[in-house]
Nucleic acid binder design. Structure first.
Lengths: 233, 233
DNA sequence: AAGTGGTCTAGACCACTCC
DNA sequence: GAGTGGTCTAGACCACTTG
């Protein structure tokens, strides 16, 4: 065999997906495996890849369904709320944690403070039309933003809060993008299948005076989200 | 069991990796599985995730090794050659195909030409220190760049050729980023493990007059490469 | 020839959802 | 309870690299 069997199965499945519409249910894995004459493992490998590609969605106890196309988010210093509305999606957030921690070496460098200084740690699940698409963890200096806990509504826009209430003016920022496999905790919070590739973004942003504002770690579901950047020469 | 067994194994393996240095060989899968008291499948699942995370590299017939950190490439309209040199890596390219095709609907729209018009299709493997890290497919209008085949050296920089020899001045561009699973053909060209997550970039760029220059599909090894973007408000 | 990772099978049990 | 996807086992054979 020249190509792996599970890839041939994947190719045949793509044809099946396109016949069925978006949202349609696939036959059960065991049935498909029998029909295709392969083991359940091989069938699952093919399905697993189609899930990672964003073509299928699996729900335990329910079945496997043809997925809707990925959302495209802007890679820019803009509000998540506005970006989602621009795509006709209803934005939402779920608070996971809002606590105070001590800066480690990396955070102290990113935020321009000393090791051990107090840091806000805000962890929220990002929702699009009620579906989790990302897990965002924001770190900000408590010394610089002492009133953050009082003025930020946990489900509200952090960017709007910073610009409107705290008078912050965003300057330049830097974003790193890579793929990783989510931990079980992260996959659970995102209601995503385990061991599937995610997009990990690391952002640091500064105000117009060059002072650090925030360090953000955002984990987005690789099967549901892509990003768009505008390039300048 | 609260977390999957393969995740507990993964966590223990991370500790082992850190004891061994970069480039060190791991014990064989079968040995590790026996030592950890798990099946080979479970061990492979853990190893597979560490490979996707860029922590391990597997070479068939040789063994599994602790990987070097990911390369960070700029997400900008800059030469691949210069970007790699800036990181102390030796850039290289391997020609896979350089042919003329007819524009389909998508290409005609991206390149501002009619469906069926001739299009250059240039497919090259991008190398860093001799290792494949990406597969780049560039589409350009033959009518606009009729001499491209004559002036471009297959292993040379396309950007340098365009700017220096053909007088092209790059204006704005747009880049889309997402994760996908490579096809077996793509994985082979990248000498990568099958079924591992990749970073897929789609770029369209225009000159300073707003005329389309190129449409590019770049598939980068998700285990070896990350990207950095500069954000402006 | 031996040893490595890569693919595949058959089958078991668990976790979850719906009836 | 029945049916679904999720995890895990034991074992087989293939493909590749090295001695």
């Amino acid at each position: 065999m020249s190509v792996p069997l599970h890839f041939a199965v994947k190719t045949r499945l793509v044809g099946l997906l396109e016949e069925l519409g978006e949202g349609a249910a696939l036959p059960p894995e065991r049935t498909l495996a029998k029909e295709f004459g392969v083991s359940r493992w091989t069938m699952r490998q093919a399905i697993r890849e189609l899930i990672a590609d964003g073509r299928l969605r699996a729900r335990q106890g329910q079945g496997t369904f043809v997925a809707t196309p990925k959302l495209i988010q802007p890679l820019a210093l803009v509000s998540y709320t506005e970006a989602l509305r621009a795509q006709g999606q209803k934005p939402g957030r779920e608070l996971v944690a809002f606590e105070e921690i001590e800066a480690d070496e990396l955070l102290s460098e990113q935020l321009g403070i000393a090791v051990g200084d107090p840091v806000h740690r805000l962890e929220r699940v990002l929702l699009a039309d009620g579906q989790p698409i990302g897990l965002e963890t924001t770190y900000m200096s408590v010394a610089r933003f002492p009133t953050l806990r009082d003025v930020l509504k946990p489900e509200g826009s952090l960017y709007r809060c910073l610009t409107d209430e705290l008078g912050v003016r965003f300057g330049e920022g830097e974003e790193l993008v890579e793929t990783v496999i989510a931990t079980p905790r992260e996959a659970d919070l995102l209601k995503a299948t385990q061991s599937l590739p995610m997009l990990l973004l690391h952002r640091t942003s500064r105000d117009t005076d060059g002072r650090p504002i925030e360090a953000v770690r955002s984990l987005y579901r690789g099967d549901r989200v892509g990003f768009r950047a505008t390039l300048r020469p």
